[in-house]
Structures are given as structure tokens and as C-alpha cells.
Design a protein around this nucleic acid. Structure first.
Lengths: 129, 129
DNA sequence: TGTAGTGTACTAGTCAATGCATACACTACT
DNA sequence: AGTAGTGTATGCATTGACTAGTACACTACA
């Protein structure tokens, strides 16, 4: 439960918060971070951890319930129902390719050397491990 | 020009339309679909093709211009931007760091391996030389 | 029985996104 | 000079997102 909660990150990307939440929770469930029947972080825990409103978390959880990924039990909590399948290696490669292209275009637009940028990304990623 | 226009797709994902547009256009630019100096599809063409409002397209184009990816010329059209003037090494290092952090955050939020992303950026950059 | 912890729900307010309509201003061409 | 085609801009309306606050209803446990 801590694992899932800790992996949640909100970006200031203009994407609605409940959508970011929904996507990240789905991805984590697909990756097997929680098993079927496991309890999810409570809505209040997520709200506090991410400093967002309870109703926003609820909105994301509602959608996850609607798609069958979790079940909500009043007074007891939320539980993993039918985790989505993990994304395929091919799909993941597509997402990497897509973000890489966006980032390349952004770097070029800013007059930044993409290779230097890539090196910096790697260095920062290693720092955070 | 047709290629870029034809590749644009809107999803009913809850992600604001202008953000989907911005990301897809950046992705196409990163993929080399248009070269520097090439004309972009006009805002009206995009609006008609996607059945969205002109102002929504404009919003996306404004952001692309703001980040230096395209230039807007009144009465003539929109064009893939030329590279910006070279900046100082120190300033570039700062911008690299900033963009790297932002990209890392995006990758993490999307569940993308930053090292794989960095490798892909390098590969794409080399392809375009 | 009472309480803590959980989901559920409502109202009100603010801000953002989108669409629509319209018109202006510039460019390039005839 | 006129026109088509392009970007630019404004105001208004509607809908959606988010927040805050508050309170209700259920569950499980002591």
C-alpha cells in the first residue's frame, strides 16, 4: 500500500489531476504493485499525500471502480478487483518513442543539445535511485 | 504538411484538446515529419480537420511558438522554427538541467524508464544528423 | 454502545477549457 | 486596388475541474 502511494506523482502538465491519478494507479496495478483483493490506499491518505481534495481522489477512484479495477466498500476501504494487464513491451517502447520525440523537439526548439540532455536525464535518474 | 495534419488524432481521454494537439505536433516534429522552415498546417485547416474551434488550435500553436518550436507569421502562416541563436555554455547547462528534470518527472509519472528514454532520445538525435 | 476509520454526497465558489461569432490586420497575388 | 488566405483578438456562454467545508452512512473493533 505504501508502495503504490509513494509512486504517485502529479505533474503540472495541464492534464486533470483525477486523470493523472487514474492512469498512474492503473499502471501500478498492471505492474502488480498490489494483488487482487489487496487494500488500496484510502482516499483520504491519497488526498493528504498529494495535497489534493478528497473529492478529486474520489473522482479517480470512482472511475477505477467503474472500469472494474477496484471495488469500493463503504466503511471498509477500496480493494483491488481486476487489475488491468501489464502493458506490453511493445506498448512501452511506443510510449518511450513518443516521449523521446516530444522531448527531442522541445530540446531542439530550445537550442539544447539532445545528447547532452539525454546524458543529464540519465545522471539525474541515477541520483534518484 | 498533409502528413502532419493526417496524423493528428483527438482522444476522448479527458486530456485538454490543446494539450493533445501540442504533444502530437511536438512528437511529429521530433520524428522529423517536417523540416525546419516548412509550413505547418494552418490553424483553420487543423480546426476543420479535427472539428474543433479555431481558438483551441490557436492555443496549442501559441504554446508551440512560446517554446520556440514554431513561428507564426500573420498573413502568411505558421512554420517550423529555425534553431534559436546559440546561448552561452553556462546558460545552456542551466536549460539542459531544467529540461532534464522536467522530462524525468514526466517519464516517472508515465512509468517510463528514464534511461531507456535517454537512449531513445540519443538514437533519434543521431538519426536526424 | 461508542468510536475511529472508511466511503458517500452535497453545496458553493473559482478558475480553466471549449465553442461560437465576429471582425480586424497583415501578406501575397492578380 | 481588390481579394483570398493567413494570423490575431475579443466577448460571451457553457461545461468541466478543483477546492473547501461539512456531514451522513456504514464497518469493525474495543
Amino acid at each position: 500500500m505504501h508502495t503504490l502511494l509513494e509512486s504517485l506523482r502529479l505533474e503540472n502538465s495541464g492534464v486533470p489531476i483525477y486523470i493523472q491519478l487514474r492512469e498512474q494507479i492503473l499502471r501500478n496495478l498492471g505492474a502488480g504493485v498490489l494483488a487482487r483483493g489487496d487494500q488500496m490506499p484510502t482516499m483520504r491518505e491519497v488526498a493528504v499525500a498529494l495535497k489534493i481534495d478528497l473529492n478529486t481522489v474520489r473522482h479517480a477512484y470512482d472511475e477505477l471502480e467503474r472500469m472494474g479495477a477496484i471495488t469500493l466498500v463503504r466503511g471498509r476501504g477500496s480493494f483491488v478487483a481486476q487489475p488491468p494487464p501489464a502493458i506490453s513491451v511493445r506498448e512501452q517502447a511506443k510510449q518511450i518513442d513518443s516521449l523521446a520525440k516530444q522531448t527531442l523537439a522541445t530540446a531542439v526548439a530550445a537550442g539544447i543539445d539532445p545528447v547532452a540532455l539525454a546524458d543529464r536525464i540519465k545522471a539525474l535518474a541515477r541520483q534518484e535511485e
